[in-house]
């Protein structure tokens, strides 16, 4: 992990850009709130403004954690994993026999996974959950001597830990990558991933609302459209290509990386939507006003984080 302080002109430029974007969004939201008259339109605008308000809070929290350093960033992501897992397990039917395994998932697996990352133990953090925890969870559940829905219960507990803890933990793990010839703070790689993945979601939403006609898959995600996906995804790739200046990548490499992040992010959102439909809910939670739960906001990051981490680690370290 690079010890260099993040607080330098480059970071100020990026913070300024985020501030500008949020300010413009807030102004547009205020204008729309005055202009739009139809009841359905007003609902959309109210939700849009709630989303923008939440964005201010999320960007401020994320920026503060990054400025305070790697440990604080790690603690923030550990907390997000804990809250995301709580959302997942809340919606998942469990039985008495699952209790001990779930308790350990929250209070041992989450801290241990992030501790392994902070300790820089790549060999163990990359297999700890998919090997050891995946065997431990059904082993503990089987002690409950309750075979009903055993495979389903095991799969749900494993997927909860996989998505909420394992996948998400690869985002802050970027801070511990040692990239030869890259002398900017490694936190910028995390910022890059989050910016491209989240802007892709935002642009898909904007393009979908303005020009969306063709529903992609109404049965799984009624708001996703082909126009939104293509317009939003390509815009995010363009931004990601431009942001190559904060990465070790060339413009062309950055375009490829952004495309990988956007594609994985799209499938992350899509897969987690299908899970929500399966569980019979619209949102994972209510913690983030306008967006839903933590998992509603991070669904694209959970798939793109491990992919981006491994692509970068394989080709650039």
């Amino acid at each position: 992990m690079t010890a260099e302080p993040l607080f330098q002109p480059l970071f100020l430029w990026l913070a300024g850009a985020a501030l500008g974007l949020l300010t413009v969004a807030t102004l547009i939201g205020a204008v729309l709130a005055h202009r739009v008259r139809s009841p359905a339109g007003r609902d959309t605008v109210r939700n849009l403004n709630a989303r923008i308000r939440s964005w201010w809070v999320m960007v401020a929290l994320f920026a503060a954690a990054m400025l305070l350093g790697g440990t604080v960033t790690l603690v923030l992501f550990a907390l997000l994993s804990y809250l995301a897992l709580r959302e997942f397990i809340t919606l998942t039917p469990t039985r008495r026999g699952d209790h001990l395994g779930l308790f350990l998932s929250f209070f041992v697996v989450v801290p241990l996974q992030y501790w392994l990352i902070g300790f820089g133990w790549y060999g163990l953090f990359s297999i700890f959950i998919p090997v050891y925890v995946f065997m431990a969870l059904p082993s503990l559940a089987v002690l409950g001597a309750d075979p009903s829905d055993f495979l389903t219960r095991t799969a749900k507990a494993q997927w909860g830990v996989m998505v909420a803890v394992y996948c998400l933990s690869h985002a802050p793990a970027l801070l511990w990558l040692d990239i030869p010839g890259y002398d900017l703070p490694a936190a910028l790689l995390l910022l890059y991933l989050m910016t491209v993945a989240q802007l892709s979601d935002v642009f898909q939403y904007v393009f979908g609302k303005l020009w969306g006609r063709t529903r992609l898959s109404p049965g799984i995600s009624p708001s996703k459209t082909v126009e939104g996906l293509l317009g939003g995804g390509l815009t995010a790739v363009a931004v990601g290509t431009g942001l190559h200046v904060i990465t070790p990548f060339s413009p062309l490499q950055a375009a490829g990386m952004s495309l990988a992040i956007v594609t994985a992010g799209f499938f992350g959102g899509f897969v987690l939507s299908a899970m929500k439909r399966d569980l019979g809910v619209k949102d994972w939670g209510t913690l983030i006003e306008g967006h839903g739960g933590i998992l509603d906001r991070l669904d694209s990051v959970v798939f793109s984080a491990p992919l981006f981490f491994h692509l970068t680690r394989y080709w650039f370290t």
């Binding site: 804990y82 709580r86 959302e87 397990i89 809340t90 469990t94 008495r96 209790h99 001990l100 779930l102 308790f103 929250f106 939670g285």
Partner: peptide, 18 residues
Amino acid sequence: ENLNRVMPKGMPLPVPLI
């Protein structure tokens, strides 16, 4: 809602649920 799943009778350890 759900609180009986957080700490079922006879289980001293809590599982966090909303």
